[in-house]
């Protein structure tokens, strides 16, 4: 009788290499393109922001509550700052996500780091958006010298 059973002390010589299930999709492609596109837009936004805040007119000495209040009463600067906030946050988050993917060796470490990252960036984005849109340049009862000129319409 042919002996077909073999003791299992030796591991199967051709035990398959477990490559993970495919993770195909365009997500990484879009994220790659987004990084480059948002980078270029951010160059304009950030340096425009720095130029207007630090160099035009009185320059850096003009920055106070009134200056910021005045800027954010114009929809142009609201959109500018909103765009800058969102692009910078998504760009930065995506960059750190890439770094986590590259350096975290275990799936659990990777998961925890990414959850923390997404949580932090969500909070910052929501908080920042809220500030840009609900900002009141003329809070009632504030000392007049701190307020922008648009609070005194005459």
């Amino acid at each position: 009788m042919a002996q077909t059973q073999t003791p299992s002390a030796i591991a199967a010589p051709r035990s398959p290499y477990a490559r993970r299930k495919t993770t195909r999709g365009n997500f990484e492609l879009y994220s790659w393109v987004f990084m480059r596109a948002s980078g270029v837009v951010l160059l304009v936004l950030v340096f425009g922001h720095l130029f207007v805040n630090l160099m035009v007119g009185e320059g850096v000495h003009a920055i106070d509550f009134a200056f910021v209040g005045g800027k954010w009463s114009s929809p142009f600067w609201q959109v500018w700052d909103l765009l800058m906030l969102w692009l910078a946050m998504i760009h930065g988050t995506n960059g750190v996500r890439t770094i986590v993917n590259d350096y975290a060796q275990r799936d659990s470490t990777r998961g925890v780091l990414k959850v923390l990252l997404y949580l932090a960036s969500t909070i910052v984005v929501i908080l920042g958006t809220l500030v840009i849109f609900t900002f009141t340049p003329c809070p009632p009862g504030a000392p007049a010298e701190l307020l922008p000129s648009i609070c005194f319409p005459n």
Binding site: R20, T22, T23, R24, G25, N26, F27, E28, L29, S31, W32, N101, D102
Partner: peptide, 8 residues
């Protein structure tokens, strides 16, 4: 075009 493909 995989998560582990050229984009890494």
């Amino acid at each position: 075009n995989d998560k582990e493909g050229v984009w890494r």
